[in-house]
């Protein structure tokens, strides 16, 4: 296969941008979810937004980002409130309460999709799961030099601009509220005694998570959203004890997974004599998992193998 510059700019560059932006925005927020043992909130939210997106789509009558985003955020809000209500009223553990809410809401989304025929237009269950990374096209650039032209950048695909905006919001929120997020992640009681509400910070975090999940959901699908909420942050968590370093490492892991996964899926098969590319969202999740596995095995301080080696050496010398 010969890769032309045009093909790369039209097909691969926008997909790469969408993948990396989605990975970075979700990966950054994932740090706080993993530290607070709320990793599965990302899982729940990425499922329960589906009915909201479908309703937004039905009301708008077309694929309109604003309507679908509003529907999704509404659904996320309803879902989180329902989870809390079930947990309190029924004395049910939060995991099970989450399981009830997100599966039933996802089922409602699936039935709505199939019944209304939205499936025929643009939305379908596969799209919701895998996203549409491969169909994110950017047809205006004509060559490398055209990338210097601001007018070309103005025609970026909708998914990429949405993701860029969400990533900017996430980064800004983390920079502005770094101290608050850090204290709430490690010691919510301290936050309360310092005079700011841990609950407000948590609620803000949930809103950010919902926003990032929805923006990424459209481009890369819910499975990759879950992988990105959890894997880069877990990878970074294996490597360091400092939150600032963990955030940077998670961005690095997310970027590596985004680029590596896309390249492997798009070009990998051709290196081995195949003729068709593989699903990029799935491959990115696999690469993120591979990076995390490496970190779990080899991290110098907390990795399984170095710890085994240290124990073995102590026994050998003692």
């Amino acid at each position: 296969m010969i890769l032309t510059v045009e093909d790369f700019l039209h097909i691969d560059l926008p997909a790469l941008m969408a993948a990396v932006l989605a990975a970075v925005s979700c990966g950054l927020l994932g740090n706080f979810l993993v530290l607070r043992r709320q990793a599965l909130i990302g899982d729940a939210i990425s499922h329960l937004v589906l009915p909201g997106i479908v309703v937004g789509f039905l009301i708008a009558g077309e694929v309109l980002t604003v309507a679908m985003m509003a529907g999704a955020l509404g659904a996320a809000l309803v879902g989180v409130l329902l989870i809390e209500a079930i947990r309190r009223l029924g004395g049910i553990e939060s995991g099970a309460a989450m399981g009830v809410v997100f599966t039933v809401m996802f089922a409602a989304g699936v039935v709505l999709l199939e019944q209304t025929g939205s499936a025929a237009v643009h939305l379908d269950v596969e799209h919701a799961l895998y996203g549409a990374l491969e169909t994110t096209l950017w047809l205006t650039p004509t060559g490398w030099e055209s990338l210097a032209d601001p007018a070309v950048w103005a025609t970026l695909p909708r998914e990429v601009t949405t993701l860029a905006a969400v990533t900017a919001i996430v980064v800004a929120a983390i920079v502005l509220f770094y101290k608050e997020l850090k204290i709430v992640a490690f010691d919510p009681d301290l936050a309360t005694s310092l005079g700011f509400s841990a609950r407000t910070v948590s609620a803000g975090l949930v809103v950010l998570v919902a926003m990032a999940a929805v923006a990424a959901f459209d481009a890369v699908g819910s499975i990759l959203v879950i992988a990105m909420f959890i894997c880069p942050a877990s990878t970074a968590r294996m490597l360091t004890d400092r939150l600032s370093r963990q955030l940077l490492l998670s961005v690095l892991a997310a970027t590596l997974a985004g680029i590596g996964g896309y390249v492997l899926a798009a070009f990998g098969p051709f290196w081995f004599g195949g003729e068709n590319s593989l699903n990029a969202a799935g491959m990115i999740a696999v690469v993120a998992g591979a990076l995390q596995t490496l970190a779990m095995l080899l991290a110098p301080r907390y990795g399984v193998l170095p710890r085994m080696f240290r124990r073995w050496r102590i026994r050998a010398t003692g």
């Binding site: 992988a227 968590r237 294996m238």
Partner: peptide
């Protein structure tokens, strides 16, 4: 075996295994 809590373990396994499944399915489609 690692310092990661159970919820992170569940999230990792479900998304990575599912991702692998999707990759295999996209291979099967061709």
């Amino acid at each position: 075996r690692t310092r990661l809590p159970e919820d992170a373990a569940i999230g990792t396994v479900l998304s990575v295994f599912f991702g692998a499944g999707i990759v295999l399915l996209s291979h099967i489609q061709t």
